[in-house]
Simulated assay, not measured.
Amino acid sequence: MSKFFMPAETEAHERIYMAFPSSGYTLGDTAEDAEAARTTWANVARAVAKFTPVTMVVDPSAEADARRHLGDAVAYELRELDDAWMRDIGPTFVRDGNGALAAIDWNFNGWGAQSWAAWGKDSKIAAAVAELESTTRVQASITNEGGGIHVDGEGTMLATRSVQLDPGRNPNATEVDIEAEFATQLGVEKVIWLDRGLTRDNEEFGTRGHVDIVACFPAPGVVLYHDQQNPEHPDFEISAQVRATLEAATDAKGRKLQLIGVPAPKTLRDEEGWVDYSYINHLVTNGGVIACAFNDENDAVAAKILADAYPGREVVAVDATELYARGGGIHCITQQVPAV
């Protein structure tokens, strides 16, 4: 029986949490890399703050850099950090039967105990954010990340087997086990399982396949999905598989899904290999949609699709190239607190 219910991300937000990059892989190897990371995180925060107050969690060592980039655009909270992917290290906010907020702590372990990841400090951030919001923290019985799930607010979830059934996260767990926990903590009645995420995200520095760069619900019964249209890219086949799965699915209300393909950027590769640039990884918050841009000819195409999918909201594009070079996008670095 469900104890809690996760609202759709399109509902009103009280606040957005982010974390400022301060060390490791996210900062990169050079001073120029580090400044590029700080600038991009700050650009996203400023875009979000046009619509919703932002609290930036900052490692004490990075406070001066954060304030230099953001000034009074955000509120600051000092906590020790390993990395800066708030969607994953922070809690997922839900409501109980009385409408009060609670915070689900997914037992973050570095995206399945990845060899390159550090998570001793980040594993405490869900509890810290719950405390900042004066909400009850609920310890989940599984390991998961916020980027690994997407709900429609009416009982349906999108997820990938490569994440929740990853032996590094939930060894010996079955789909039934995972679905039972999502039902309890998020009020999910039906999980639509995709087999995996995008190619780059399944490589060394990826998450093993987060759903939030693959597909999302802009509204109940409607799914936006990443449509790689160039057969040279290995994600061409993955997009076809995703579409086939979604075409065959129904949601918790028994509806067939309306599918809207969002063309992938024309850019296929960077110096590391095939890119996983995706316009799916956007943040919807109050009157705005904070969208990824890549200085690509499909940026405008995607922005128009998002504007149509979220009528009445302003689409603000932010260059996300430096985010994706580090393993994620705008949705990955933000986490919403639903309005009570």
Rank of each mutant, 00 (worst) to 15 (best):
P60V: 10
E271P: 13
T174K: 00
R38G: 08
Q336R: 08
V58A: 14
E63M: 08
H69A: 13
K266D: 15
A293Q: 04
T55Q: 00
A31H: 02
V191D: 13
L224G: 09
G146C: 04
G197H: 04
L194C: 02
R255W: 03
I290H: 02
C332N: 05
A320G: 05
A320F: 03
A302R: 03
S115K: 09
E181F: 00
T334H: 10
G110W: 15
T207W: 06
N281F: 15
Y324Q: 08
V44C: 00
F182A: 02
A293S: 11
V214S: 06
A180R: 02
G273R: 05
A180L: 04
V191I: 10
W85K: 01
N172G: 14
I178N: 01
T250I: 00
V262R: 00
T245D: 05
E154N: 08
D296N: 03
P171G: 09
G209C: 00
S134T: 14
D276R: 03
R196W: 08
G206D: 11
Y76E: 10
P263C: 02
V44S: 02
T245H: 02
N281H: 14
P60S: 10
L158N: 01
P265E: 12
A117R: 13
V284Q: 03
G147A: 02
R169F: 13
A339D: 10
T52M: 08
A34N: 11
G168Y: 12
K50V: 11
R255E: 12
G187Y: 05
A36N: 12
V129F: 07
E133V: 14
A45E: 06
T245S: 06
E204A: 13
V211L: 09
W116N: 03
L194R: 01
R68Y: 13
W111D: 06
D319G: 03
R38H: 14
G24M: 07
P21T: 09
R208G: 02
D65P: 00
T26F: 15
T143V: 15
H331V: 15
